[in-house]
């Protein structure tokens, strides 16, 4: 079980909206992943586990959520990591632009929703007075230089995003209780 939250007065409406945004993005991510993986027969991109090495070589970063785990929940740090993670995935999804004509609309929608969720979190941090002075600056993004790298990168990025959202959902649900 997650340890008790500190005294950060997080509004319930914010938590309910955030949970809904997570579910919306997860649903879109699942559909997009299915579309990418459904090209399996053509491109043999079925299992993200087969792309781990490629992920390292491309330098696809992961978003840490250490302040959101059960060992030591720090809501303020957790909100900040959620925001930074969403900004990271927003940039990664942008780097995947042009992945394929079929999934581009879904990719655009996913990126818009991730962007909006990041704004929801940031504005709540501002309202709580815990937002850092300067927004986190995005590090360099991997360059997907071939159609294969964009497809494989797409599978990896979206799989990572789903895992990130799963953790986010758990902590938001905990904070709602």
């Amino acid at each position: 079980p997650l340890s008790p939250a500190s005294a950060l007065p997080i509004p319930r409406s914010f938590l309910l909206k955030s949970l809904e945004q997570v579910r919306k993005i997860q649903a879109e991510g699942t559909e997009l992943l299915e579309a990418l993986v459904s090209e399996c027969t053509t491109y043999k991109l079925c299992h993200p586990e087969e792309l781990a090495l490629l992920g390292h070589s491309l330098g696809i970063p992961h978003a840490p959520l250490s302040s959101c785990t059960s060992q030591g929940l720090q809501p303020e740090g957790c909100l900040s990591q959620l925001h930074s993670g969403l900004v990271l995935y927003q940039s990664l999804l942008q780097a995947l632009a042009g992945i394929s004509a079929e999934v581009s609309p879904a990719l655009d929608m996913l990126q818009l929703d991730v962007t909006n969720f990041a704004i929801t979190i940031w504005q709540q941090m501002e309202d709580l007075g815990v937002a850092p002075e300067v927004k986190p600056i995005q590090g360099t993004m991997p360059a997907f230089t071939s159609a294969f790298q964009r497809r494989a990168g797409g599978v990896l990025v979206i799989s990572n995003l789903q895992n990130f959202l799963e953790l986010a959902y758990r902590v938001l649900r905990y904070l709602t209780k």
Binding site: E20, Q21, D108, L112, D113, N116, I119, T120, Q123
Partner: peptide
């Protein structure tokens, strides 16, 4: 259009 909307704000 969606691109001009900010959802949840």
């Amino acid at each position: 259009p969606r691109k001009q909307l900010l959802l949840y704000q």
